[in-house]
Simulated assay, not measured.
Amino acid sequence: MKRYLNILLLILIFILSSSLKMHSVPTSKKITLNSYAAVVIDQNSGRILYSKNSDIRLPMASTTKIMTTIVALEKGNLNDKVIISKKAASIGGSNVGLIAGEKISLEELLYGLMLRSGNDAAIAIAEHIGGNVDNFLKMMNEKAIEIGAFNTSFKTPHGLDADGHYTTAEDLAKITAYAMKNEIFNKIVSTKEISSGISGKFNRSYSNINKFLYRVENADGVKTGYTGGAGKCLVASVRHDYGRYICVVLNSSDRWKDAEELVKYAKENYKFIKLYNKGDEIKSLRVFGGKSRYIISLTENDVFIPIKSEEAQYIRTEAFVPSVIFSPIKKGDVLGNLVIYYDGNIIAKYPVVSDRDVDRKNLINTITDTFKSITIK
């Protein structure tokens, strides 16, 4: 009850402050884009702040390499040494100039992939991580399903046009929001120039071809793309006080301007309100088979939600957490979700986590507990 009262108080304060300073709270404005499809989301909440044809399946060119990179980071080691195959060295399109038989670190390949959009690096990475390209594509598609990008299909690790190779602006935003939580991924895509890394001095120096990094304050990624079938594409990330805006622009005649317009729209039309603090208690859960009988589910981080001023009174939250759970449990394990609704529709989800470790009972624990219960009676 105290939690709901605090939320209502925050919303009331937000409404009152908005009415007292109405001149400083912009209303929703129309936005003109040059792209066929686009979306901007808040990274942490996942809320879509603006969309245009964002659920239509489209080719995505080299923005494909976002998934190539995150799979490689999760499956490989930056210090791995990769021997470049003839297949990788001979791939067409943009490349970093890899030579068959050359030995190069996985780390350098990833910088070549994301800063220079190297198709040769994409093939080399796929062969190294998957054993062959087909196996790596399976990993990419499995990861897409895991992230929740259900309208995405990868047929290449580099993004050159291919039948059945597609995504949607929304799916690509989800994939990017996930990837940007990886510190190494974030470091790679935000880098402007580099010639050495944790694996040592690189074989080459790399400068980033993503002009968005140089055009917009607080931009920290992510990837450009272009093919004849996909047109000019861009996935952009911009940091703000409560996280990041993730923008996706597909098939645009002016991708830089479109991404800037999306960020501007998000900033002008949405304000962030805080619903929960990190570590707030959400629900108590019964534990079966554990040394502790109960655990508490907590918010993993501060919960900020982007809303328009007129939406505040229609925001509500609901916890989807089981009543019982089986041991063992580790502190920080995700137990469920805190779901945010606007006007009855889900607009965001935040994980809730365990407040403690709970080990599984062994035979001695079980006998001891049984003896105690008999003694008490």
Rank of each mutant, 00 (worst) to 15 (best):
S90F: 05
S94F: 03
V96R: 06
L98S: 07
L98N: 04
L98M: 06
I99V: 15
G101S: 10
K103F: 07
I104Y: 01
E107R: 03
E108M: 13
E108S: 12
E108N: 08
L109K: 03
Y111M: 11
M114K: 13
M114Y: 08
M114S: 10
L115K: 10
L115N: 06
R116S: 11
G118Y: 08
N119M: 05
A122E: 14
A122D: 15
I123M: 12
N132A: 14
N132C: 09
V133K: 05
V133E: 14
F136E: 09
F136P: 03
K138S: 13
E142C: 04
A144T: 08
I145D: 15
I147P: 07
G148Y: 00
G148Q: 13
A149H: 02
N151V: 01
N151A: 03
T156G: 09
T156V: 01
H158W: 06
A162S: 15
G164P: 00
H165M: 02
Y166G: 00
T167E: 06
A173F: 14
A173Y: 03
K174W: 02
I175Y: 02
T176W: 01
A177F: 03
N182R: 12
K187P: 10
K187I: 11
I188V: 05
T191E: 06
E193Y: 12
E193L: 07
S195A: 13
G200Q: 02
F202R: 04
S205T: 09
N208L: 04
N208T: 12
I209C: 01
I209R: 09
N210Q: 04
K211M: 00
Y214R: 13
R215D: 12
R215A: 09
E217G: 01
N218V: 06
A219H: 00
A219D: 01
A219S: 02
D220P: 02
